[in-house]
Design a protein around this nucleic acid. Structure first.
Lengths: 107, 107
DNA sequence: TTGATATTCAACCATTTGGTTGACGTTCCG
DNA sequence: CGGAACGTCAACCAAATGGTTGAATATCAA
């Protein structure tokens, strides 16, 4: 029942996780290096990365001891489309956007 | 410390709240009418509207007995900008986007 | 005034979330 | 081999979240 948008938005709701995404925007990083600037345990960052990965926002690949974390911007696309629809209320494609939204309506 | 993006994204993380926003996209509505299609108490919907309102995604104006709920698409703009940055990683304005992100990086 | 409608408040509950610490399994290096 | 680095797991904790019910507060209408 957990929608992909649920996972995406709740992953984005935490400032630590958004900061991680911003760091990964510049480069792929090891878990330890992701954790370095934060005043928080490595285990906590590891958990945040699990959340980001299970939302598809980040992929992780283990090479040797090191687990490399990579930003996956495609996963943001659906959520971005969702949001842009609200910003463009007066645009011509409102019907298509509402059809997309209708998938989420109850009943 | 609670960033505006925190509030926006965590408000959007709930499917009931996203559905409410979709309903309000079509028209302003009273709280009771917002609640009608959901299999959930009115009090629960009232709480969801408080969350949406405190994130600035919805405004509420009481006229008589009825509290009218109105979509506020502007509040989505900052979050939308944030997300679009990730989708446009190869765009020229990457520097400006990173400057914006830098506000969220830890000290 | 009496009663129905609209909405919130308060108390409560179960579950999830975001963090900690310490032990653990891997992998590299000397 | 022995130790250090990388990362996760497990148990625990406090606080937040999402829901319930029942009482309370306004407002309209007869």
């Amino acid at each position: 029942m957990t929608d992909a948008l649920d996972a995406t938005f709740s992953a984005l709701a935490d400032p630590t996780r958004r900061a991680i995404l911003a760091m990964l925007l510049e480069d792929d990083m090891a878990v330890t290096d992701v954790a370095e600037p934060f005043e928080m345990s490595l285990a906590a960052i590891s958990k945040h990365l699990v959340v980001l990965a299970s939302a598809g926002l980040v992929s992780q690949e283990k090479r040797g001891r090191v687990k490399w974390c990579k930003l996956e911007p495609d996963a943001l696309r659906a959520a971005s489309v969702w949001m842009q629809g609200f910003g463009q209320m007066d645009a011509v494609d409102l019907d298509a956007f509402e059809a997309f939204l209708a998938q989420e309506l109850p009943g």
